[in-house]
Design a protein around this nucleic acid. Structure first.
Lengths: 226, 226
DNA sequence: CGCTAGATTTAGTCTCGCCTAAATCAGAGG
DNA sequence: CCTCTGATTTAGGCGAGACTAAATCTAGCG
């Protein structure tokens, strides 16, 4: 597979990540996530279409081609392996790993990727609970999960993943033990207040629904899996 | 300290490395090492002079400013720490580490640098025997050493450093145990043949003077130091 | 059916680093 | 002191990837 620029990798990755979260990858969404003007996105999409990495016609939905998806998966694999490595081996805090991996994902060799994966024992999930694509492009299958913001009140759940890159949010959650694998009691949700109340380790916490929407949980009848 | 582009870091690093080896950093030498045309070097030197990172006047010798030297040292520190880390912790072969470090040196955070240095116990030399600048910009002092190509024949010496990036050369030397720390008997030198004969672990090897010039040795009255 | 808001695309520029070709300079030898 | 050679600099350009401003499309609503 030919080597593409970091910019190209970033665009493809963001298209993939939006799709992974079930969001339509529009030009606007890409512009926001890439911190770039919408006009720049259009320009790049044209190039990506030329390169057969995305299917793109003006005003039509954006889709990755097989080749584009392969690159996106590779970058995502690098990112998540790096997060796991930085946290587990180097002892970096879980809120720091994203920023570091965001950069390094574009620069590690296949050799280094393999050494890292091996050292970690080929993990299936990163410290935020995100699935790590395998070398052949397959994803670990995870059980049905729901956003904490939508889960059944007064049930016990297990935190599965946290989809929030902001360091402050991760510090906040980490300090309160709201991390993948944690068992949590969902006390109540208030639609009108826009809050979710949970109990972790005997302490109560109230989260805004925005943050609660970024947290995926599993019904409690499960075992830990990290 | 402001963040400069990878290109700028590379230019400054090469100026530093040439000086470290006692070579005048001319435009031509830089062009070769950076794999760039001489005209491009001139252009970049102008920019670097504007940025107060080098002292440069047309046709005058090139010198790093304090700021430029600080950046060069930082990049070299990253490079050599990474080489040590990749070899010692990740188990990468000593001939592979240079290429990987060459890229990653520009992308690791200060935080990661610190974690790596700590994990390694703040080493003074990298796997090739090159000194690792400390955080405050000082270098470990190494004892007087000479190129293998110039050393006294029929003496015992210790390999101190190998100044050759080519993978094939490193594989060749590594397979024969010609690595920093190794004790070697310098059997003879032939000016006319352009060869140096050494004995390592009971086996004789003949090296061309070019390669022998890239190997630094210490007189034998020393202890191992890695 | 027509309007409008918001998303998207087009057009035209800018900067960074690189290039080639041509000009110029420095230093050695006659 | 002149000339030749090799190093260096100047001049002119190019491609990537970003930007702003202006034009255009789409979709929802009255």
């Amino acid at each position: 597979m030919v080597k593409f620029s970091q910019s190209i990798e970033d665009y493809l990755k963001q298209v993939y990540l939006l799709q992974e979260r079930g969001v339509e990858p529009t030009g606007k969404a890409l512009a926001e996530r890439l911190d770039v003007s919408p006009a720049s996105v259009t320009g790049m999409l044209k190039r990506l279409a030329e390169l057969k990495l995305v299917e793109y016609e003006p005003y039509q939905p954006i889709r990755l081609t097989l080749a584009g998806r392969a690159i996106a998966l590779e970058v995502v694999r690098h990112h998540r392996l790096l997060e796991a490595y930085l946290a587990d081996v180097l002892g970096m805090e879980w809120h720091e790993v994203h920023a570091e991996a965001e950069i390094l994902e574009h620069h590690i060799s296949e050799r280094m990727e393999a050494l890292i994966a091996e050292r970690l024992g080929h993990p299936e999930f990163d410290p935020h609970g995100h699935p790590i694509p395998s070398l052949d492009g397959t994803l670990p299958k995870s059980r049905a999960k729901a956003a904490l913001a939508d889960a059944e009140p007064d049930t016990r759940v297990e935190i599965a993943a946290v989809h929030d890159d902001r360091e402050a949010a991760l510090v906040y959650l980490g300090e309160r033990g709201i991390v993948p694998g944690a068992r949590v009691h969902l006390v109540e949700r208030s639609e009108v207040a826009g809050t979710v109340t949970i109990e972790v380790d005997g302490a109560r916490h109230v989260l805004g629904s925005e943050l609660a929407a970024a947290i995926d949980v599993l019904p409690q009848k499960t075992r830990a899996r990290r």
